[in-house]
Design a protein around this nucleic acid. Structure first.
Length: 481
RNA sequence: UCCUCGAUAGCUCAGUCGGUAGAGCAACGGACUGUUAAUCCGUGGGUCCCUGGUUCGAGUCCAGGUCGAGGAGCCA
């Protein structure tokens, strides 16, 4: 019996009723649990990742390998089941598979030490077995949700006539201002070439100059927006910050649309439509997984004596209600009028701290808030200077319970103003020669934003730690797997 | 990077006043049952994170270190 010749049914399809009871079927997957009945058969829950739920296989004792193999199956073992889809006599499921033959592909060596047991594990522990954690309910669900959201990103932009631009992973921009960068080099670290003055001679390096991993595709994608009008980039992004939090990764994925002939309000509208479309599609396409996350979050909240976050209702409301728009100056006024004692005192000109964002979103408004037009001192050089001369057309989208999920701006399209800003910040204009060219040759108003993809997944699933919504997380001191 | 907390069986944890190691789950053996992370009985399983110190004696106290988590900052 060769497994390759068997057509394989997806367990999700079988449970969904795509196949009529009485039909012969073959499934392939991994054992979740096994229960034996002395009445003459075993129940095996088999999972193949196609959906949230496993399917129950009934293995009768007259199978030739019942004693020798079926009774030795433990959690994690892989197998092929040939049988018939039948209506279940049990209560917990509509259909099950009456096995005619079971072929074990792989037993679990040393079941006593198999890291994934049919019980609740701590996420902290599962991070140490990142290669096996996708076999759990939670991480399987996250993988499917992640995929669905990624597809929804592409679908949203495609339908609106945006083009996906593959911006480079390796860049030579040395001061994009978005954070510390990882160096890319082929130099021999034990024997570095030196210039006459003793500095490292990067002209001998692979690219003939210093190179780094990208911290943002924005500057590059602007070039394509100034030619194709509506574009976006979606790919990995790298920050060498020593951040140890539940919402930072050294390697994460970012979605960055860029729209030409657009101002900040248009940018905010796009961000709102975009997020709503993502969550709408997610609720529609991954109901089984989302029900699991909602249950989990509800149970967790109950144990901690907190109100149920109501993951699904929250996303539905998110998708149905409009985002609040608020000027930065207005946000400051509201914070000052709150009567709250904040750890960081509120004054115009400061950046909003986590505690301030929480108050605005969770307590004051209760739904997503777009804060717009920040003081220029706390924002990047490329953001468009407003007529008041002291604010720039920047925005942050703050989501309840998670904080900043999107950061964006209208870009400075006036060369003279851009140059003045770069001078103020002592940036090397030569290094940005091509970025400045975009303003010299047929400049247009344009705007864009960046969505932290993992943060969107966190918000959608209620997962507390960003390291648990990416398959193999990279954080300071950790690049295992 | 700063603050706080933690590390004991495969996993989750308990371990009193410093006196030489425990539970639940998992595994293994058995009983029972169209079972549902089944249930019941039994068995095996330990570098108590590392190094040093105090002590007759350290899982427990002290010092240093390693690793992890939560919060803050940076940000997406």
């Amino acid at each position: 019996m060769t497994t390759a010749s068997h057509p394989r049914s997806s367990i999700a399809d079988l449970l969904r009723g795509k196949v009529a009871p009485g039909t012969p079927v073959t499934i392939k997957g991994w054992v979740r649990t096994r229960r034996d009945s002395k009445a003459g058969f075993s129940f095996i829950h088999v999972h193949d990742g196609s959906g949230f739920h496993p399917i129950q296989v009934v293995a009768p004792k007259d199978l030739p390998n019942y004693e020798s193999e079926v009774l030795r199956l433990t959690t994690g073992a892989s197998l092929v089941v040939d049988g018939e889809l039948v209506k279940s006599q049990g209560r917990a499921q509509a259909v099950e598979i009456q096995a005619k033959a079971i072929q074990v592909l792989g037993f679990v060596e040393d079941p006593d030490h198999y890291p994934i047991q049919p019980k609740q594990h701590s996420f902290e522990y599962l991070r140490t077995v990142a290669h096996l954690r996708p076999r759990t309910n939670t991480f399987g669900a996250i993988a499917r949700v992640r995929h669905t959201l990624a597809m929804a990103v592409h679908r949203f932009f495609d339908r609106r006539g945006f083009f996906w631009v593959h911006t480079p992973i390796i860049t030579s921009s040395d001061a994009e201002g978005a954070g510390e960068m990882f160096r890319v080099s082929t130099l021999d670290l034990t024997n570095l070439p030196r210039t006459e003055s003793g500095a490292v001679d990067f002209s001998k390096d692979f690219f003939g100059r210093q190179a780094n991993l990208t911290v943002s595709g924005q500057l590059n994608v602007e070039a394509y927006a100034c030619a194709l009008s509506n574009v976006y980039t979606f790919g990995p992004t790298f920050r060498a910050e020593n951040s140890n939090t539940t919402r930072h990764l050294a390697e994460f994925w970012m979605v960055e649309p860029e729209i030409a002939f657009a101002d900040l309000p248009a940018d905010a509208d796009l961000a709102e439509d975009f997020l709503k479309a993502l969550f709408h599609d997610l609720l529609e396409e991954r109901a089984d997984d989302m029900a699991f996350f909602a249950d989990r979050a509800a149970k967790e909240a109950k144990e901690a004596n907190r109100p149920d976050p109501d993951i699904i209702g929250r996303l539905q409301r998110f998708a149905d209600s409009s985002f609040e728009r608020m000027e930065y100056s207005e946000a400051i006024r509201r914070l000052e009028a709150s009567g709250r004692k904040f750890e960081f005192p509120v004054r115009w000109g400061m950046d909003l701290q986590t505690e301030h964002e929480r108050y605005l979103v969770d307590e004051l408004v209760g739904r997503p808030v777009v804060v717009m037009n920040y003081p220029k001192e706390i924002k990047a050089f490329y953001m468009r200077l407003n007529d008041d001369g002291r604010t720039v057309a920047a925005m942050d989208v703050l989501a309840p319970g998670i904080g900043e999920i999107i950061g964006g701006s209208q870009r400075e399209e006036r060369l003279d103003v851009l140059d003045r800003r770069m001078d103020e910040l002592k940036l090397d204009k030569e290094a940005y020669w091509w970025y400045r060219d975009l303003r010299r040759y047929g400049t247009v108003p344009h705007a864009g934003f960046g969505l932290g993809f993992e943060r969107a997944i966190q918000y959608a699933t209620g997962m507390g730690n960003i390291r648990d919504v990416i398959p193999f997380p990279r954080t300071p001191g950790n690049a295992d797997f």
